[in-house]
Amino acid sequence: MRRALAGRKVFTFDQGIKYFFLFNASIAIVAVMAIIAFLLEQGLPFFREESAASLLGRRWVPYLDTGALYGIIPLAAATAWAVVLSMLAALPMGVCAALYISEIAGPKERTFLKNFIEILASFPSVVLGFFALAVIAPLVKRIFDLPSGMTLLTASIVLSVMALPTVISVSEDAIRNVPMSYRRASLALGASRLATLWRVVLPAAKSGVIAALMLGTGRVVGETMAVLMVTGGSPVIPASPLSAGRPMTATIASEMGEVVYGSTHYSALFLIGSILLFITLGINLVIIRMTAGRE
């Protein structure tokens, strides 16, 4: 009888531990679903007053009493410029740095570099925004002879710096996980060390590099403060990286504090947030499928 009760207690305890871990594992799923539901609840009422075509307009002028315009094309274009330019700089720089740290640097140098990368990752975005405003913007203005250095190029430079720690860390982990036998086989066949790195090690770590791209892009897409400080805040379609602009995150941050609760403008800002969220989720799903297929 006592053995049966003891076995029942152990079973109950084990089941309780199992459900406790299941609860903790499910928090992320519940949180994501709740956020999506909240954003859609606040954003979808926009379509009661405006059409989907108005959302795809080329002008964002939401403060007019009559005839307000809620076209997000200028905001989306500025976001695209900033993301693409920053990742074009951060990805090759980050992968090269990861190759050096993983394959070339000595133990002490590797530790030194990784510590500084972690320090860079811990910098508040507002501090990097101040640096871009005080140093990078005047430099861009002087080099390109512009009336103002607050451009999408300036934002892209600071965003690439912010994405570097993520790209370097994830890529370096992927490169270090490539089996040593790959390197030895390549060197045994007569390949140089540089050829081994570029033609054997890096292709073998491509899944991790793709993950680095995904995480870096997510970091850049969601950045707000630094972007808000240096893009110029002009809600027009940028003609080039040297133009001012206002990305989607900067628009939400600059206008949410002044908008009337429940208004069409209020719903439009939440709809922009929903679009950003689905863009990020879409990027993650695409990269996960690509990574799974290649593995």
Rank of each mutant, 00 (worst) to 15 (best):
T66A: 12
G67R: 10
A68K: 05
A68V: 02
L69W: 04
Y70K: 04
Y70C: 10
I73Q: 10
P74R: 06
L75N: 09
L75I: 10
L75S: 09
A76V: 14
A77W: 03
A78L: 03
A78N: 02
T79W: 00
W81Y: 15
W81D: 04
V83C: 03
V83F: 06
V84E: 02
L85N: 08
L85V: 09
S86M: 01
M87C: 06
L88E: 09
A89F: 10
A90Q: 07
A90P: 10
L91E: 08
P92W: 03
P92C: 03
M93I: 15
G94E: 06
C96F: 13
A98N: 09
A98W: 05
L99W: 08
Y100P: 09
E103N: 04
E103T: 07
E103D: 08
I104W: 07
I104K: 13
I104T: 11
I104F: 05
I104G: 03
A105G: 09
G106H: 03
K108W: 13
K108S: 14
K108C: 08
K108D: 10
R110I: 00
R110G: 09
T111R: 14
T111A: 15
F112K: 11
K114A: 11
K114G: 04
F116L: 14
F116E: 13
F116P: 00
E118W: 02
E118G: 11
I119K: 11
I119P: 02
L120E: 09
S122R: 05
F123T: 11
F123D: 08
P124G: 09
S125D: 10
S125P: 05
S125L: 07
S125I: 05
V127P: 06
V127G: 07
L128D: 04
F130K: 06
F130H: 02
F131I: 06
A132F: 05
A132D: 08
A134I: 04
V135R: 08
V135Y: 12
P138R: 01
P138T: 00
P138C: 09
P138D: 05
L139K: 04
L139G: 04
V140Y: 02
V140I: 15
K141F: 03
K141S: 12
R142Q: 12
I143S: 07
F144Y: 13
F144G: 00
D145A: 11
P147I: 07
P147K: 00
P147V: 05
T151M: 08
L152A: 07
L153A: 10
L153R: 00
A155R: 06
A155V: 15
I157C: 03
I157V: 15
V158F: 04
S160M: 15
V161S: 01
L164M: 15
P165E: 04
T166E: 09
T166V: 15
V167H: 01
V167A: 02
V167N: 11
I168F: 00
S169T: 14
S169A: 14
V170S: 06
S171K: 08
E172S: 13
E172W: 00
A174T: 03
A174N: 09
I175L: 14
I175K: 02
N177V: 01
N177A: 14
V178E: 05
V178R: 02
V178Y: 03
P179F: 08
S181K: 12
S181H: 07
S181A: 13
